[in-house]
Write a protein that binds this DNA or RNA. Structure first.
Lengths: 223, 223
DNA sequence: TGTCGACAATTTGCGTGCAGAATGATAGGC
DNA sequence: GCCTATCATTCTGCACGCAAATTGTCGACA
């Protein structure tokens, strides 16, 4: 069990940040964290350094570190990167997919469909993320997979802000779109996968943007 | 000068790794590094954790950490990601460029041309990298800029292995291609920039691949 | 002679303490 | 009454020390 201390702190904090249990901007004090995890400050610091490198926390030099804020000004740039990664990972998956990866993709698609049936928004967000990560891994390019994973995780935080506004029309549409994606990947049709991935991304971007426009606090709060 | 210890170690090690002063696979011992930098092990560890998050070193749990190896098996995947980033950053730069960014781009282009004149391969590699990073920043998407920067830095290590094989035909061609790129960006022609970026990338990939094919040790050494 | 097991050495992972830096509070001057 | 300068507090950055884990070596046994 040696060497698992910092790892455990890292994973716990990462999960807490992504699931918004820790509010963006809230301070992370090393000493209170060390008391909370019943460990010394050293592994805490290592976890914070790693999270900072990932962009999930911001370290203020000689002061404290805070949970990274969700910058709504950067949202267009975020959508831009997300869309491209949707397209390229889906395209590559259509080219490089292997049977066992298709099984994994189908499994997450089933989990997502089940979450939609249960109207479980949190499970939807999580399984949707894993579904697309599985596609990215089938694409076989770790550079894209890493960036995409980071973007999807950041997206979890954004989606979590709006998950209460989910109605059940769009998620069912997502299930269908996912189904088309999987079919195109299985068929090995790169251009079709690319196009479907782009449309799927555009659809999601439109949804989030309409949610943001709906509650006008979006531009002021949660800095 | 407080808080600069770990930063200094990080920057020094990063530079040494990228410039191949530290051979890929060579072990990094915390105590000897701490003696070398005349500091405690704590800031050394912090620097190593950051480098590990960036993928520049590999940490073997409960053992030592080594300089990340250049995996030639992954080279196709690397080229794939590099090409896409070449294209997308150039395209975005054509759309979002601002005057002061164009000045910066032109400055690095001049530095690159001068390095070509001087036949200074090391300066060519460095200014080429900065030239494309400037374009990426003009594109205005930090997600792409970060990935592209990482790819270009990794490319510095690869290019450094072959910089002795540079003749002066290709670099001059690069200067011309860079000139075309800048012109297209200035004109705001996104499609042309995209295409030129892709061709420039393909050109570089071809060159590196031919170098690798030329000396047959490429597939066996430097793991 | 080859293989297995125990031991020593090296190195990391983590605990703890101290000094420096930044912030907020308080007192003094205008 | 307001602004400024000094000080106390608090937290980080770093030094140092100990214990666990792994590796390589040496010796014993088949």
């Amino acid at each position: 069990m040696r060497g698992s201390g910092a790892q455990k702190v890292y994973e716990t904090l990462r999960k807490a940040i992504l699931e918004l249990e820790l509010d963006p901007g809230s301070p992370l004090d090393e000493v209170s964290l060390s008391a909370q995890f019943d460990m010394s400050r050293t592994p805490i610091r290592e976890a914070l350094v790693r999270l900072a490198a990932e962009g999930l926390v911001t370290t203020l030099p000689n002061r404290n570190t805070i949970v990274a804020t969700i910058d709504f000004v950067r949202l267009p740039v975020y959508f831009e990167a997300l869309s491209l990664m949707y397209r390229v990972t889906t395209r590559l998956a259509a080219i490089n997919r292997r049977p066992e990866q298709l099984i994994s993709i189908r499994a997450w698609q089933a989990a997502f469909a089940e979450a939609v049936e249960r109207q479980d928004a949190l499970a939807m967000i999580a399984s949707n993320r894993d579904f697309h990560v599985a596609i990215a891994e089938a694409g076989g390019n770790p550079y894209f997979t890493q960036l995409f994973t980071r973007l999807l995780d950041e997206g979890r935080r954004i989606l979590r802000l709006y998950y209460s506004s989910f109605d059940d029309r769009l998620p069912r549409q997502y299930v269908e779109e996912h189904e088309l994606l999987v079919t195109a990947i299985e068929a090995g049709d790169a251009d079709l996968s690319d196009r479907l991935g782009g449309e799927h991304a555009a659809q999601i971007v439109r949804q989030i943007q309409s949610y943001i426009a709906r509650d006008q606090t979006g531009s002021m709060r949660l800095v």
